[in-house]
Design a protein around this nucleic acid. Structure first.
Length: 411
RNA sequence: GCGGACGUAGCUCAGCUGGUAGAGCGCCAGGUUGUGGUCCUGGAUGUCGUGGGUUCGAGCCCCAUCGUUCGCCCCA
């Protein structure tokens, strides 16, 4: 006997869980359309290079956390760990760099080989928005406004805060990086073990350490704002002004950073306190050199992504669609008539179903459990008059209705 | 990759200091012929996550393993 178990970090979405999932996607797609975005559906796997080129060698993300394998043709394939790279690849391979800007919405499964945690799975799902080919800060503001509106439409407002920051342009970033290294190097002995490593590999990451000792130092560390070039400063100022114009409330948080070098200028995160350590529910930033890194032309981009599993945990229970009318033949010989009734109802968009097993009592029990509001009892007596018994399952009343009148009565 | 907690019927859980398993809900069948939700009666549930070990004997102790969960790391 094979042990039937879902693969670690995967889950089945059944019933109300599937409804929640669906609602997040449908809502996000609808809101994204308000901003002019259209949906792209790109493959769930890509040539490994699509992801690895942009990630560089510094992070062990590539080697340890991607689902990469050789396919039967010997090509290195990777299950997409995020959505942006695939969208950028699609932009290039479809020649859409000739018709910029492009505003893209996507939703789908992503795969990362990580230790599962609350709201964190190995196959997880994201919604995302990308605006490609726009180098104006207005695009950043619009992307953020869109994210905010999605959260709002989902009813996730309470306890959610938008944090924004700028990473500057590459020049600003390099200067700041050097300044940080200088600052923290003077206090190496007071840094946590993790942050000592970060100081070597990725000094910016010290800024969002959770260690208390680190936090005390970080509070006194220089912020990027002292190292911004004029252009970077202007860009950030414009972003904030446009956010105000769009009615988006935000908090400036100089500790927001990104792990990878292709990010520049705007970085933002919507954070909640209601999900423990996994508090970031929607995050994004500007990536002006990503497409180029992948081997494409220079196309600036700004976008965000959000984990559907986390959003699902925060939304109210979706309203269930109305349960189908239960059609119940009282004897096997009336099954034929029942089928024609089912057909008539469905033809006018009235959900209707017939239980396949059991006697009338059993079928009525099932109808009740399915939360159907009506049952159509098909009996020989009524059938001889071209009618059926229509039972209201909520109050128990029952009356005879002509079969031809059913669609109108149930509409 | 690191640390803590947990894993008993479909679900939520109980099981005293080791003596071969229980409750509630759900499920199934009845309470007479074509009628649910309430009520009554009866019934089935399980190699106690899995594999080893200790013991006369383990759900309970030990080890391993798989999984869940909460953190750390990472976070594209």
């Amino acid at each position: 006997m094979i042990k039937l178990q879902p693969v670690r970090g995967t889950q089945d979405l059944i019933g109300v869980e599937a409804l929640r999932h669906r609602r997040v996607i449908d809502t996000a797609r609808r809101i994204a359309a308000l901003y002019g975005a259209t949906e792209w559906i790109t493959p769930m796997f890509e040539a490994t290079a699509v992801f690895s080129r942009t990630l560089g060698d510094t992070s062990d993300v590539v080697t340890k956390e991607m689902y990469s394998f050789e396919d039967r043709g010997g090509e290195s394939i990777t299950l997409r760990p995020e959505g942006t790279a695939g969208v950028c690849r699609a932009l290039v391979t479809n020649g859409l760099t000739q018709s910029l800007p492009q505003k893209v919405f996507y939703a789908g499964a992503m795969f990362r080989f990580e230790r599962p945690q609350k709201g964190r799975y190995r196959q997880f799902h994201q919604i995302g928005l990308e605006i490609l080919g726009a180098d104006s800060a207005v695009a950043d503001a619009e992307a953020i406004a869109c994210g905010e509106q999605v959260l709002h439409a989902l009813g996730i407002d309470r306890g959610v805060e938008l944090n924004i920051n700028t990473l500057g342009d590459p020049e600003s970033r390099d200067a700041y990086r050097t300044a940080l290294i200088n600052f923290f190097s003077a206090y190496v002995d007071r840094l946590s073990a993790d942050s000592k490593l970060r100081l070597q590999k990725n000094p910016l990451r010290i800024l969002d350490s959770k260690d208390e000792g680190d936090l005390a130092l970080v509070a006194r560390a220089p912020t990027i704002h002292d190292y911004l070039t004029t252009q970077a400063r202007d860009f950030y100022a414009t972003l904030k002004a446009r956010l105000v114009d769009l009615g988006v409330e935000f908090v400036e948080n100089p500790r927001i950073v990104r792990g990878l070098d292709y990010y520049n200028h705007s970085a933002f995160e919507f954070v909640t306190t209601m999900l423990g350590a996994q508090g970031t529910i929607l995050a994004g930033g500007r990536y002006d050199v990503l497409v180029e890194l992948m081997g494409g032309p220079k196309v600036p981009g700004i976008g965000w992504a959000a984990g559907i599993e986390r959003l699902s945990m925060l939304i109210d229970e979706p309203v269930r669609p109305r349960s189908p009318v239960a059609v119940i033949p009282m004897q096997d010989t009336l099954e034929s008539l029942a089928c024609s009734v089912l057909r008539d109802l469905r033809a006018v968009n009235i959900p209707a179903e017939m239980a396949y097993r059991g006697n009338a009592k059993r079928r009525l029990e099932r109808a009740n459990k399915s939360e159907a509001t009506f049952a159509i009892l098909i009996g020989a007596d009524e059938a001889s008059r071209g009618a059926v018994a229509l039972k209201n399952l909520a109050d128990g009343t029952q009356r005879e209705v002509q079969i031809a009148d059913l669609p109108d009565v149930l509409q």
